[in-house]
């Protein structure tokens, strides 16, 4: 079973004759006998997901890494976090996915209005199954709890992903009046209600 481990800003992927998927162009070095090839359209999830992705503008380009050895993966010197999934679902912005092991399935979930305002795609990616997924973030990721009566509001640019029973709404932080004529810093934010966790990075740009 391939093993992902984070070492600050580099991800170490140990492969034992199996396969992982990693963001295209993220390989910085490798040892052993590894094969890198473009996973083609879709980045996993098959043709249907690829089509949804194309419609939604959620871009994700992955490559297949197979063989025996160790690959070092990194992206823009961003911090790396490895999350173990045991049959549950993680919702994550596709640009934050660095790599995932074979047992996981990536799909596209439409996010409605949110994507339009944050400049990200119209959709987010869901990761389901058992295995490991490696996320990249600007600065370390904080896991913030959402519980009934404890809503969380997040800047769209700081949002990395979430897990749990959450619903997401758009809120306008700065009043509409003040939006006129000048660029307001926090025009829209995401309000999370329900029960779960929201992953937030330390940078808003």
């Amino acid at each position: 079973m391939a093993q992902l481990s984070a070492e600050k800003r580099v991800l170490r992927a140990d492969l034992h004759g199996d396969r992982i998927r990693a963001a295209s162009g993220s390989m910085v070095a490798y040892e052993g006998n590894l094969d890198f090839k473009n996973a083609g359209m879709g980045g996993g999830g098959g043709m249907r997901a690829a089509l949804k992705r194309a419609v939604a503008g959620e871009s994700l380009s992955l490559m297949d890494v197979t063989g025996q050895g160790r690959a070092y993966l990194a992206k823009d010197a961003m911090d790396v976090l490895v999350v173990d999934l045991g049959g549950d679902t993680l919702t994550v912005e596709s640009e934050h996915i660095l790599a995932h092991t074979e047992g996981l399935r990536l799909d596209v979930q439409f996010a409605g209005l949110r994507g339009m305002t944050s400049g990200h795609g119209l959709a987010t990616t869901t990761v389901t199954g058992s295995g490991q997924v490696a996320l990249v973030s600007e600065g370390p990721v904080m896991a913030l709890e959402v519980a009934p009566g404890q809503d969380l509001v997040v800047d769209p640019d700081a949002y990395v992903g979430s897990r749990g029973q959450l619903s997401m709404n758009l809120v306008s932080g700065v009043s509409w009046k003040s939006l006129l004529g000048e660029d307001a810093g926090e025009p829209f934010s995401l309000r999370f209600t329900g029960h779960g966790l929201v992953l937030v990075q330390s940078s808003e740009s």
């Binding site: 999350v83 045991g86 896991a143 709890e145 404890q150 966790l197």
Partner: peptide, 9 residues
Amino acid sequence: AGGIPRTLS
């Protein structure tokens, strides 16, 4: 869950 940093509330 494994890997996710300690939850803050």
